[in-house]
Nucleic acid binder design. Structure first.
Length: 604
RNA sequence: GGGGUGUUAGUUAAGUCGGUUAUAACGCCGGCCUGUCACGCCGGAGGCCACGGGUUCGAGUCCCGUACACCCCGCCA
């Protein structure tokens, strides 16, 4: 007797057979996706990663096989041999294989299955907590199978693309020396070096620059990075980056290479031709219009900066605005068209929403037929001289609503940025995944090298110390740091930052000035980055690079709503793995070997 | 660290003003059925209402706390 796997090898996948295969003897392996037992005949939907094929077991043809088939239950893992037969009148148009079925002559149950904790179906509304606990079952579902196959495709295309373009795939260490600043690191105690710790690399940044200095010219890596920061919908503590560095390049060269990759990915994964080049927008413009550096350009609802206008009118009769401007804050407004038709209750809800982000409130004004403001805390006192220009710059028409934020710049920007997206979702301005015109790529360029920290009233580096300032801004490095812009760039898609990079500082002289401006002493610089500073003094080529967030790319390519849906084994918001229980306890012996002592005391 | 939402059979949900034995669908178990594909029909099992306090004659329901999950702010050069 012939046995499955040893003698009977798989001939086809469950998504493969068509009417061209009618008459063939086939062997399929897979899982019981569904069963319909009609007594004399049992119908099974057999599933593997490629699809589903209907298998029929008939009592009067093979009573012994039929008897086994009666025992089949959902998610049993089986092998089937049989003949491909036309379904005749009974075609199932919903199935790729719906024109045929397999009439089984042999069946082996490799493994039975207990009742699964949730159904293995395409559309499942099981709590995510449960899905993550049984992730191996969640991953059996077709949508996640498709997503991970897309992810594999992205890996494959990326490797081909860079290899074809003269890039070398080179590795970098995960266990590195901790350098302060930037993201919080995960620490790994060193058993061989008591009291010392490795850090898990938050990015290969310094090593890829050293590859350039070593003369490797063009580097790429699809690499895991680790950051011990709080999680979000689009942030996991370990994530994958498409990391790139190139020698003898300027910003445009990097953009060309990356646009080439992105276009290839969209073409090969979605069959979409993206227009090139991608548009660019200065950082300052993005902050003014959208309140952040990752604007979603699929809809308008831009912000208007009213700070200067308010200042010109001495507050325009509104003490709150005057006060905000006088204290160095900013004033922003946004028009909500009358068609949004918000009720008083809904606007109150919006106010609660923005208060959750640190806003003091949500000042608003409804524009009347004559341009006057109603339903507004400003209505009584605002001067027409200021009101009219505000109506004009916001484009507010009678019936429209103007929403205001004022005060500390960072809060105003954050609140208005989130409000803009929130309102767009509420009013249906964001197109469904799969409809046309939804790929709005953008390069955000020319950010300042320093950002003003209102709390400490000092200029703080906005980026790492190896970003190259604009040559024409160098004179201001010591005198007016806020005027120094740099060769840094972010690639943005539909409101997500999917990549960021910079042209690096390769000139040791300028490097020294930047360190000084950043308040990093020569000793400190030597301590932290001595090896890189040495390297820069020994014939470092001009170079620059970028890193793309691979998980976010896949998330956007597949229309997934969360990064957790494109990561096979994701962590929860508290950084735990609900399936394995990580992170777990260490026993006393392990800790002693590592010279580590926990000070943690569980709450009573 | 802060704000918000949620937690009821295996799963997804309902549960009114605080009041008798907590419902339904799917799944599961048993039986019947040869053209189903969300198969159908008959029968059955299945509950610490997340956990801990409190209010009350009486709590799934009201209050407080805790845990967990999710969303956001801070954080993420």
């Amino acid at each position: 007797m012939q046995r499955f796997i040893t003698d009977l090898k798989r001939t086809h996948s469950c998504g493969q057979l068509t009417k061209a295969d009618i008459g063939k003897e086939v062997v399929l392996f897979g899982w019981v996706n569904n069963r319909r037992d009609h007594g004399g005949a049992v119908f099974i939907d057999l599933r593997d990663r490629e699809g589903v094929t209907q298998v029929v077991f008939e009592e009067d043809v093979r009573p012994d096989v039929h008897e086994t088939a009666e025992k089949l239950r959902l998610e049993y893992c089986v092998g089937v041999r049989g003949k491909v037969v036309s379904r005749g009148e009974n075609v199932n148009p919903k199935l790729k294989t719906g024109e045929i079925e397999v009439h089984a002559s042999d069946l082996e149950i490799f493994n039975r299955s207990e009742a699964t904790p949730f159904p293995i179906e395409d559309q499942v509304d099981t709590a995510e907590e449960k899905r993550l606990q049984y992730r191996f079952l969640d991953l059996r579902r077709a949508p996640l199978q498709r997503t991970l196959m897309t992810r594999a495709r992205v890996n494959h295309v990326t490797r081909n693309y860079f290899t074809e373009n003269g890039f070398l795939e080179l590795e970098t260490p995960f266990m590195v020396k901790y350098t302060p600043g930037g993201a919080r690191n995960f620490l790994v105690p060193s058993r061989l070096n008591p009291g010392k710790f490795y850090a898990l690399a938050e990015s290969p940044q310094l090593f890829k620059q050293l590859y350039m200095i070593a003369g490797f010219d063009r580097y790429f890596q699809i690499v895991r990075c680790f950051r011990d920061e709080d999680l979000r919908l689009d942030r996991q503590p370990e994530f994958t980056q498409i990391d790139v560095e190139m020698s003898f390049v300027e910003q445009n060269d990097i953009f060309g290479v990356i646009e080439g990759l992105v276009c290839r990915l969209w073409k090969e994964v979605l069959g979409v031709e993206l227009p090139r080049p991608f548009p660019r927008m200065p950082f300052d413009e993005s902050m003014a219009k959208y309140g952040n550096d990752k604007p979603d350009l699929r809809f308008g609802m831009e912000h208007q900066l009213l700070t200067d206008l308010v200042r010109q009118h001495g507050g325009g009769g509104v003490p709150l605005l005057q006060d905000a401007v006088a204290k160095g804050g900013i004033v922003k407004a946004m028009r909500v068209p009358a068609s949004a038709n918000f009720s008083r209750t809904e606007i109150d809800k919006l106010e609660e929403y923005v208060k959750g982000m640190g806003a003091k409130g949500l000042a608003r004004a409804k524009v009347a037929e004559n341009g006057e403001w109603t339903q507004s805390p400003f209505a009584k006192t605002v001067t027409p001289e200021m009101r009219l220009p505000i109506n004009q710059v916001t484009g507010a028409q009678p019936g429209d609503l103007i929403l205001f934020q004022f005060g500390k710049a960072s809060t105003v920007h954050t609140v208005m940025a989130n409000l803009r997206v929130h309102l767009a979702k509420r009013t249906g301005l964001i197109p469904e995944f799969g409809s046309g015109g939804q790929w709005r790529f953008l390069w955000v360029v020319d950010p300042p090298l320093f950002e003003y920290d209102e709390d400490s009233a000092t200029w703080q580096p906005a980026h790492h110390a190896f970003t190259r300032p604009r040559d024409q801004d160098l004179p201001f490095l010591e005198t007016d740091p806020g005027r120094v812009y740099c060769w840094r760039y972010d690639l943005v898609l539909n409101g997500f930052e999917i990549g960021g990079g910079s042209i690096r500082l390769h000139d040791p002289e300028v490097q020294a000035r930047v360190f000084k401006a950043m308040g990093i002493s020569a000793e400190e610089a030597r301590n932290k980055f001595g090896f890189l500073l040495d390297a820069l003094r020994m014939g470092a080529p001009p170079h620059g690079g970028i890193a793309l967030g691979m998980d976010r790319l896949v998330m956007l390519l597949t229309g997934a709503e969360s990064l957790r849906d494109v990561v096979a084994w994701p962590k929860t918001q508290k950084g735990t793995d609900l399936m394995t229980g990580a992170p777990g306890d260490a026993d006393a012996r392990q800790l002693r070997d590592l010279y580590v002592k926990s000070t943690y005391e569980p709450a009573k």
